[in-house]
Structures are given as C-alpha cells and as structure tokens.
C-alpha cells in the first residue's frame, strides 16, 4: 500500500501549550506538511480559526524562532502562549 504510506508521511505533529490545548481540544494536533512556518500559521488559522486571535511563540526543534524558517515532516513544532499568572 505505497499510497497510504505516502499519505502518512504528509502530516506533521504540533505540540500545544496553555490555552491552545483548550482551543484545539487536544495536547497535540497534526496538519499537512507545509514548507515553512509562515505557511504553517496560515494552515493553522484555517483549521483552527481561534488560534488567529491568540498570541503564541513558535518553537521549531526546541528553539524559539524569530523569523520564518523552513519545515519538514520531521520538524518538532511547539506553540507556546504567554502566561501572566503568579
């Protein structure tokens, strides 16, 4: 079943933190593989419109990014909203 294999490869997993978990209803979500973090955000905003109204930092392979970076199916992506509580 080579087609299924290819299909499986085309998803990337994203780890969520804070209120993003509540908005998505899950700790982890998958989206189709995109080429960079800019496209990732567009994809997320389509799939999870509530994300567009939330502030969060993006980490790729456990590093916070400050500009658009390329992604592949193996990239470890995490989305972290700021917390103010004390």
């Amino acid at each position: 079943m080579p087609d299924c294999l290819i299909l499986q490869m085309r998803y990337m997993e994203i780890i969520l933190f804070g209120q993003l978990r509540d908005l998505a209803g899950s700790n982890r979500i998958s989206v189709g593989v995109v080429t960079d973090t800019n496209d990732l955000q567009k994809e997320l905003n389509l799939k999870y419109p509530d994300f567009a109204n939330t502030k969060y930092a993006i980490a790729v392979d456990k590093k916070i990014i400050s500009k658009t970076v390329p992604l592949n199916a193996e990239s470890e992506i995490a989305l972290l909203p700021p917390f103010s509580g004390g």
Binding site: Q19, K55, P82, F83, G85
Partner: peptide, 21 residues
Amino acid sequence: RDLFPEPPKENEILNCAEAGV
C-alpha cells in the same frame, strides 16, 4: 521580549482570575 516580543492585547490571553489555577 526574545520570547514574546510584544504583550498580548485584551482577549488574546486569559488572565489568572478568568483562567483559574
């Protein structure tokens, strides 16, 4: 600010009293 350059605006993040802890 290297983590979160600018503060969230109202409604972008829940505050503690709303969110609970």
